[in-house]
């Protein structure tokens, strides 16, 4: 499903180049639940952004579902992001001034869905995350856990193959974090491929496989 070969990412820094990823090769199969771990500055978030097509690699090859996507233009990236990938962020990243239903409808509307269909689909997604009773609440009327559930509902509304979660429990207390992880586990069991970045070993235990990154290289892999 995801096949990375020698992925390099560097940024110009004055005359020098700052190399964040120094050659990452990684394969993730459909239906896997993978945790990427590493200290801050290790490059795990950069790797995540490249997998999520939010960023382009400086070198190497990225095959997504058998198609080279490493050097697509912005609009083609957006198209694949929109249809194949769902994002869950540490800080939820909900849109301001919008109730939960509309948050979840937004990616569908960007895909060109008609409003009534998008609304039905969004209600289903909110039902899956257990927020049917909160659909007309704005983000500032929801707790952190509820906001993250809205974000997850938004991520799965478009039926993506892959869920990318960047520190999904980072802004939540232990209890709510656990609930969110349970939800991700359930989604994984229903067939979603999940790639998650975290620095908490306890959260990583939910994954089938943990990849440790340090200084832009994969140091070790653990299978559960």
């Amino acid at each position: 499903m995801i096949h990375l070969t020698d992925i390099i990412k560097s940024y110009p820094l004055g005359k020098e180049k700052l190399v964040i990823l120094k050659g990452i090769s990684l394969t993730i199969e459909p239906g896997e639940f993978v945790a990427i771990m590493g200290p801050s500055g290790s490059g795990k978030s950069t790797l995540m952004n490249i997998i999520g097509l939010l960023d382009t690699p400086s070198g190497g090859s990225y095959l997504l579902e058998g198609k080279e996507v490493g050097n697509l233009n912005e609009n083609d990236q957006a198209e694949i992001r929109s249809r194949r990938i769902g994002f869950v962020f540490q800080s939820f990243n909900l849109l301001p001034r919008m109730d939960a239903l509309r948050q979840v409808m937004q990616p569908l509307l960007y895909q060109g869905w008609a409003r009534p269909k998008a609304e039905t689909k969004a209600r289903e997604a909110l039902h899956i995350v257990g927020l049917s009773g909160r659909i007309s609440h704005n983000p500032n009327e929801l707790s952190g856990g509820q906001q993250q559930r809205v974000a997850i509902a938004r991520a799965i509304a478009t039926d993506p193959a892959i869920l990318l979660a960047d520190e999904p429990t980072g802004a939540l207390d232990t209890q709510t974090g656990h609930e969110v992880m349970d939800l991700l586990t359930t989604l994984n069991k229903q067939g979603k491929t999940i790639v998650m970045v975290t620095h908490e070993p306890r959260v990583a235990t939910f994954a089938h496989r943990t990849i440790n990154i340090q200084d832009g290289l994969i140091r070790s892999e653990e299978h559960k």
Binding site: A78, R81, S82, N93
Partner: peptide, 16 residues
């Protein structure tokens, strides 16, 4: 800016 970033992440194209 951040809102624009979120919108792009969830599938908004340049045109949108």
């Amino acid at each position: 800016t951040r809102e624009i970033g979120i919108r792009k992440a969830i599938g908004a194209k340049k045109r949108d």
